[in-house]
Design a protein around this nucleic acid. Structure first.
Lengths: 107, 107
DNA sequence: TTTGTTGTTCGCAAAAGTACGAACAAAATG
DNA sequence: CATTTTGTTCGTACTTTTGCGAACAACAAA
């Protein structure tokens, strides 16, 4: 089976979509805002701010982590979450370019 | 039933999430890029550049339209789609502010 | 009126997302 | 060792998303 290699643009679109998808839920947007505003964020701190069960919060954090937007490290017995700065920068640039495009069409 | 009014921040998060969700699929990101790059975009033009069935393309367009990112008008017998400039500006600003935040935490 | 063109909507199936309680794991503490 | 604290993972139920072919609607043209 031959699979055509995807273009660089397609790869970019995929990455944008992956970040966007992770941000596609109000709770996850709010979690990011919260992490941006705090010095240090343990799971419990985050959980306290949202009306969801801890299983649900944990799942949202997992998705943000899988997308690369945040990272978590164990500080026994707690888990500390924070923004993944490197990927945050990448996301910032991708969305920056995306929205910077001139609109050519005229309706 | 009493429902607590949501905060302005919550409303903002919802709006960001709604835009992000609409952009949470590679094909939809690519559709937006395409619309940004073309003078005028009829459904057929869009359909031609994607490997999906027309029903699928139509559905993606519908979601982008529901999110407010694009608009479509009938030019019988064709349908012309384009970026919704007003909402595009809103999205640009929301994401701009979102990603402009200083990262306070330090991991 | 019949035919052709252009897209949308419908109905289906498979997959993914959302939310929760309960069970579980890991490590410190009594 | 039993207990407590902190989160993750599991299992379940329900909803939503994705993608497609087929049916349909609107209109122009033959």
């Amino acid at each position: 089976m031959v699979k055509k290699k995807e273009s660089a643009q397609q790869a970019t679109d995929k990455q944008i979509a992956a970040f966007a998808k992770a941000l596609g839920h109000p709770t996850r947007v709010a979690i990011i805002q919260f992490l941006l505003s705090q010095e240090s964020c343990y799971f419990g701190d985050i959980h306290d701010v949202f009306p969801n069960a801890k299983a649900t919060v944990s799942q949202h954090l997992k998705e943000l982590k899988n997308a690369g937007l945040i990272q978590g490290e164990i500080e026994t017995p707690k888990v500390k979450y924070c923004i993944n700065k490197e990927n945050w920068e990448i996301a910032r640039n991708l969305f920056g370019n995306f929205f910077a495009s001139e609109i050519k069409n005229n309706c």
